[in-house]
C-alpha cells in the first residue's frame, strides 16, 4: 500500500511532471516564474487548490456522476466545481486567514481555469485511483508543478543578468530554456518501477 503510494508520488513529481512532461499549466509556468518568491507563492496556491479540488471532484464523480451514468459530463462538471471552489476558498481565506490570503490571494483567481487543476482531477479518474491514491497523486503532481516553477524561476533570474542576443530577448529565450529543462526531465523516463 505505502509502496504503491510512493510509486504514484515519484511518478507524478519526476517522470510525469505536469509542466515538463505533460505540458499542463504552461501559462502560470511562464507567467509567474520571473521571481523565485512569486513562483513559490503560485506553487503553494496551486498545491492547495489541486488537493482540495481532487477531494471534491473524486467524491462528485464516484457518488454522483457514476451512479447516474453521467460520466460524459465529467469535464464541464469538474470545471464548475473547480471554479466555485476557488471562489469559495478565496472568500474563506480573506476572512479566516488573512496572512495566507495576502500571500496566495493574488494567484487564486489565476487558478480558476488552470488546466493543471482540471488535468489532475481528470487524470485521477482516468487512472481509476482510490480516494487516498487520488489525494496523494494530486499532492505529488502539484509538488512537481512547484518544483518546475521554482527551478525555472532560478533559471530566469540568471537569464536576467545574462548577455542575451537582442533577437532572443524576452519570450524566445524563455521558451528555449523551458524546452531544455523539459528535455532534462525526460531523463527521468528511465526510472521504471
Amino acid at each position: 500500500m505505502m509502496g504503491n503510494l510512493f510509486v504514484i508520488a515519484i511518478t507524478a513529481i519526476l517522470m510525469e511532471n505536469f509542466v515538463l512532461s505533460k505540458f499542463l499549466g504552461i501559462c502560470p509556468f511562464l507567467g509567474v516564474s520571473k521571481k523565485l518568491k512569486t513562483a513559490l507563492g503560485m506553487g503553494a496556491a496551486v498545491t492547495f487548490v489541486i488537493v482540495l479540488s481532487a477531494i471534491v471532484t473524486w467524491c462528485v464523480q464516484r457518488f454522483l456522476l457514476v451512479p447516474l451514468k453521467l460520466e460524459y459530463l465529467q469535464t464541464i462538471a469538474f470545471i464548475l466545481i473547480i471554479a466555485s471552489l476557488v471562489q469559495f476558498v478565496e472568500m474563506a481565506l480573506m476572512k479566516l486567514v488573512p496572512p495566507l490570503y495576502e500571500s496566495l490571494g493574488i494567484y487564486l483567481p489565476l487558478i480558476t481555469t488552470n488546466c493543471a487543476v482540471l488535468g489532475s482531477a481528470i487524470l485521477i479518474q482516468d487512472n481509476n485511483y482510490t480516494f487516498i491514491e487520488g489525494v496523494v497523486y494530486a499532492f505529488a503532481s502539484s509538488i512537481g508543478f512547484m518544483l518546475a516553477m521554482v527551478m525555472f524561476a532560478g533559471v530566469r533570474e540568471r537569464l536576467e543578468d545574462s548577455d542575451i542576443p537582442e533577437f532572443l530577448k524576452g519570450f524566445p529565450i524563455t521558451l528555449i530554456s523551458a524546452s531544455l529543462l523539459s528535455l532534462a526531465f525526460f531523463g527521468f523516463q528511465g526510472l521504471k518501477f
Binding site: 454522483l64 453521467l70 462538471a77 466555485s84 469559495f88
Partner: peptide, 14 residues
C-alpha cells in the same frame, strides 16, 4: 438537472 442542480447549489453556497 444534475448540472443545473450543481450550479444552483454552488451558487447558493457562494
Amino acid at each position: 438537472l444534475v448540472l443545473g442542480g450543481m450550479g444552483v447549489l454552488f451558487g447558493i453556497i457562494l
